[in-house]
Amino acid sequence: MIRGLLGNKSFMFSFGVIVLLLFSSIVYSVVFENHIPKADLRFEEGAELVSKPPYSPFEYPPLGTDNISNDLFFIILVGAKYTLGIALAVAVFRFIISSVLGTFLQMNFPGIVKRIQPWLEGFYYFPVSLLTFLLLEWVLKSDGYFDGIDSEFTYSLFERVGIEFIILILVAVPITSSTIAKEVKRILEQEFIDSVKILGGSKFHILKTHVMPFLKPQLLLIFVREVIQVLLLLAHLGVLKIFFGGGLVKEDMFNNSVFVSLSNEWSGLIGNNLRFLFTNYYWIPLVPILFFTITIVLLKIMLEALKTELQPSTPNKVGEKENKLQNSPSLKAKRRMQVEVREEMFREL
C-alpha cells in the first residue's frame, strides 16, 4: 500500500505541499523567531505619497498586507504551524479515543452499542459548529468581555486552551466511535469470523489477526477525514469569532478594545478581518479563507488517492500473500479492463 502511495503523484504532491507548509512554518519560527516584515509607505521621488497600506496583493506581492501593513504572506506562514498543528493534534486524539472506544465496545458489548446508536442521532441535527460555538462561547468570548464584574477571563490562557482542546475532541467522539463500531460490526459479520470462533479464536486473536487487517485502511481514511473536519470547524469558529484560546484583548487604532487572535492562527485571522470583506481591502479576510480552502482540498485529494489505492485490496483480503497478489500491477490492470469493458457495454445503452 505504501509503495502504491509513493507512486501516486496526486497523493505525493498534496502530502508534499502540506508537509512543506508545516515544515517551513516551524523552521521560520526557529530561525527568524516569527518576525513579520512591515511594508513601508511608498513615496515617489519627491515627497508625494503614492500609496499607503493596506497594499493589495498586486501592489505588494505575493499576498499583500493587512490593515496595519504587516506582510500577509509571513502572517500566514507564521500561523500555519498553529492551525495545522491544532488540527492534527485534535484529529489524532479524536481518532485514538474513537477507535479504541468504537472497537472495544463493538467487540465486547455489541448489544449495548446497538441500543446506544439511535440515541446519538441528535448529533446529526445539531450542527457541530453551532454546538462547539455554544460550548465555547462563554469560556472564550463573553467571559472575557466586560460583564459587569470584571473584564478578565476566569480561566488562564493555558486552561482555556485545554478546555477548547477537550471540547473540540469530544464533540466528534460519539459520531466517529459509532462509525468505527459500524465498520467493526461489518467485518465481524463476515463468514470466516464464524469459523475463527468455532476453531477457538479468542477475542483478542480475532481483533488482532482478523479484524485489524480490514480495519486499518478504513481507520486511515477516517483519520484524514477527521483532519478535514477539524480544519473546517476551526474556520467556522473563526467566522463566529471564537479564537483559539480566546485571544487577547488589544486596542485597535480607534482605541476600541478588540479581541485579536494569538500568534496569527488562521481561524483568528478570518474572525479578526471579516469586517474588511465588503470594503476595498477584501483580500485581508480572503487570504486566510483561501489557505484553509487550499489545505482542505489538498487533504481531500490525499483522501481520494488513498481510497483508490485501498479499493482493490479491500473486498476479500485474507492474508498478506493474497494481498500482494491482488495488488500486483497485472491483476489491477486486468480488473480495470473488466470494469471498463463493462462500462463500455452500458455506454452503448
Partner: peptide, 21 residues
C-alpha cells in the same frame, strides 16, 4: 467532483459575495 465537494462553504459564500460586489 469529488475534489470540488471538499471546498469549504465559507469560501464559496465569500467568493460569491465578492463576485457580485
Amino acid at each position: 467532483v469529488g475534489i470540488f465537494e471538499a471546498i469549504p462553504d465559507i469560501f464559496i459564500i465569500v467568493v460569491t459575495q465578492l463576485l457580485f460586489v
